[in-house]
Design a protein around this nucleic acid. Structure first.
Lengths: 180, 180
DNA sequence: TAAACTATCTATAACTA
DNA sequence: TTAGTTATAGATAGTTT
């Protein structure tokens, strides 16, 4: 039986060293970058993983992949590395609950702000939020362990102001007819 | 010639959806994470690319790959993408980020809530949010001096989440042309 | 629990348009 | 140059050790 002439050599093994030819290297980069991101996507889908990838091309052009987003993954990673708190300790039931539910509340606020933005009434909230940020900026960057009592009181004040905003936002949302 | 009995089914196609079985998912995660990092390594070698990858397992355990290092890639990315909200804001690189051991759980909960919203189950969140106001009030009124480290950490974590929201909102407002 | 195996699936090197 | 095609190299799902 005649063997049909092969139309291509198919995939060939290539040595695992820097590709010398510029054009060839660029093509390989594009293809493999796409492949890498696809693999990452599959890892997220199949396993429920969260993945952030940043790639700089040979020409230093940036590409990124993120699930749920590059920022969320990076934030978590950077946060973890910036605190010298041992990861081994498990959060106590009580403590975990209160901060968890707080996050729930905060998540709600975000949605509410989204709603308000759509209605063109975001400015007041923005200003108030900015004010809070100002009051918090000083101690924000420091490890909790370094805070002294004065700073803690300031923190409490800032939180109280923050809480007022939260309450205000929720009531505003109510006025807008959002179900609470 | 006798055909040898096949010893395994070999690789089978799998549907691109979350793997339900816990153990199976964990194994797949380990294998595919290794594969992903290998692909990234090859991309670096072949093309001279710089790559940083952060992966959180289904159990929220972090893994990372970096060439030349995770930090160098992240630093470059963050310095390019760091949108400064106000000129008075100072953060050096990632200094703004700080968090607690609770961050992982909190973020997970937020994601779960987002899923619930998509499924039209907003009411449950509302009830839980109401619970917050209550649980929060409890510690809220207490003297700061009574707070222990765990509570402080959780407070800081919660505030950090809010901080991100504030920054995000102000940034979005800018993009919408709102004056701040 | 992990490491090894292997048949099969997937990614991609070389080629073409 | 970016987008398809093809055949082979490489990754991995299911299984065994």
């Amino acid at each position: 039986m005649m063997s049909k002439k092969k139309e291509t050599m198919g995939r060939q093994r290539i040595p695992m060293v820097r590709i010398k030819k510029e054009t060839h290297r660029q093509v390989t980069f594009s293809k493999r970058r796409a492949g890498l991101f696809k693999k990452a996507s599959e890892l997220c889908t199949l396993c429920g993983a969260e993945v952030g990838i940043i790639v700089y091309s040979p020409a230093k052009k940036p590409f990124s992949f993120g699930h749920p987003s590059v920022e969320s993954v990076l934030d978590r990673y950077l946060s973890r590395n910036n605190l010298s708190i041992t990861q081994t300790e498990k959060p106590q039931g009580n403590a975990a609950a209160s901060s968890s539910v707080l996050n729930v509340e905060l998540t709600q606020i975000v949605s509410q702000l989204e709603e308000e933005k759509k209605k063109g009434q975001a400015m007041a909230e923005m200003r108030r939020a900015n004010a809070v940020r100002w009051s918090m900026t000083n101690w924000w960057e420091r490890p909790v362990e370094e805070m002294n009592m004065i700073q803690l009181r300031e923190m409490k004040s800032a939180l109280e102001e923050l809480w007022k905003i939260v309450v205000s936002e929720t009531s505003t949302a109510r006025q807008l007819g959002l179900r609470m």
